[in-house]
C-alpha cells in the first residue's frame, strides 16, 4: 500500500464533509475531495508515479510537494507542464501524463 487520505471520520482535526471531485487521468475517472490538488488525488488513489523521464524512461510522481521540483508535471485540459502538486483539481479536469521523448538528432 502507499499514500492515502485519512478518513474524515477518524481524523482528529474533524474536517468538514467532502464534496467529491472527479477528474480523468489518462482516461480513467479518479475521485477525490474538493480542494485537493491533482497530485493529492492521484496519490491517495494509489498511483505513486504518473510521468516517465525523457532519457531513461523512469517513473516519476511527486517529490517536493511545494512547486519547486517540477517532477509532478502533467497536461491539464490540454495545457502542458502543470505542476500537479500545486493545481487544485476541478471537477471534470482532463489530466494526461507527459512523456517527452528527446528529439531524434540527425548528425
Amino acid at each position: 500500500m502507499s499514500a492515502r487520505m485519512l478518513p474524515a471520520g477518524s481524523d482528529p482535526i474533524r474536517p468538514g464533509p467532502t464534496a467529491p471531485v472527479t477528474i480523468h487521468v489518462d482516461g480513467e475517472p479518479v475521485t477525490g475531495a474538493a480542494g485537493q490538488t491533482i497530485a493529492g488525488i492521484v496519490l491517495a488513489n494509489g498511483r505513486l508515479a504518473w510521468r516517465r523521464t525523457s532519457s531513461d524512461g523512469r517513473p516519476r510522481g511527486l517529490f517536493c510537494g511545494i512547486g519547486v521540483c517540477f517532477d509532478c508535471i502533467v497536461t491539464v485540459n490540454g495545457d502542458r507542464d502543470v505542476r500537479a502538486c500545486q493545481r487544485r483539481a476541478c471537477d471534470g479536469d482532463v489530466v494526461s501524463s507527459q512523456h517527452d521523448e528527446l528529439p531524434e538528432v540527425h548528425r
Binding site: S2, L6, I13, A33, Q36, L62, G65
Partner: peptide
C-alpha cells in the same frame, strides 16, 4: 504539505 494541506499521508 500533503499532511497539512490535504490530510494525505505519503
Amino acid at each position: 504539505a500533503l499532511a497539512k494541506g490535504e490530510r494525505v499521508a505519503v
